[in-house]
């Protein structure tokens, strides 16, 4: 109960801060919370908005699927062997902290404009954190678990489902949470540069028109979606029995 109260307080605090900023910065820079809500409500009623949102959702779904499946597979593959794990970790971390926007032209030249470039760009952002977390989780499984499994003569299949999976699941969910938000960011940035559809494009074209209300409304819509998804994954993380 106290947690809910705190969250409400936080939201209220953010709204008050926003309103104050609005009074300070004025109409050109920001729209007020109520103005943004109104505009968002109006946008939600238009088919144009949902067309863009569906396009983003489709690219995002593909990219997240690639990030999660690919990241977990790659992480398991690299983590099972200690040497390959130790060898690849710094390389993965270096790739992770690279400003991947820089590589955008490369992605465009390889994939062309459109859907596949967006998906590739999103997956590029999300794949590596999932890989890193899965790999570290596999490497950190206590050796005694494996020995116990040998003593009990478990088949590889049993080992995977009764030992490896439960042991790595919490870490993988943390990785998935990070991968999820980074993939979303990747897809949106991709749409901002080279797309004629999607919410990122909508923001970019609103930016060209100086249409602050639309920028704020779409940004808020995306933030609420991202925070809700994040909260869901965090809840999932807590719900797993340890």
């Amino acid at each position: 109960m106290k947690r809910t109260g705190d969250s409400l307080l936080l939201i209220l605090g953010i709204l008050v801060l926003w309103q104050v900023l609005y009074w300070l910065a004025g109409d050109i820079a920001l729209t007020s919370p109520t103005g943004t809500a109104e505009h968002l409500w109006k946008l939600l009623g238009t088919a144009r908005f949902w067309g863009h949102a569906a396009e983003t959702a489709r690219a995002f779904a593909f990219a997240v699927a690639i990030s999660l499946v690919g990241g977990v597979a790659l992480g398991v593959l690299l983590g099972l062997n200690r040497t390959s794990g130790v060898v690849s970790e710094p390389i993965l971390i270096a790739l992770y902290s690279l400003p991947k926007v820089t590589l955008y032209p490369l992605v465009l030249l390889c994939f062309g404009l459109g859907m596949s470039a967006k998906v590739a760009f999103g997956a590029m952002h999300g794949l590596i954190p999932v890989t890193i977390f899965t790999m570290k989780a596999i490497m950190q499984i206590k050796p005694v678990f494996w020995r116990t499994a040998h003593v009990m003569r478990l088949t590889p299949r049993q080992m995977a489902f009764t030992i490896a999976l439960p042991a790595v699941l919490p870490e993988v969910i943390v990785g998935a949470r990070l991968g999820f938000s980074l993939t979303l960011l990747g897809v949106l940035i991709g749409e901002m540069f080279a797309s004629q559809r999607g919410l990122g494009f909508m923001i970019m074209s609103a930016m060209g028109l100086g249409d602050m209300a639309t920028i704020m409304a779409v940004a808020v819509f995306l933030s609420v979606f991202a925070i809700a998804a994040n909260a869901l994954l965090m809840w999932l993380d807590r719900a797993i029995p340890r």
Partner: peptide, 10 residues
């Protein structure tokens, strides 16, 4: 989780 760059135009 918030795509911060969406606020760059602001």
């Amino acid at each position: 989780a918030i795509p911060t760059f969406m606020f760059y135009p602001v």
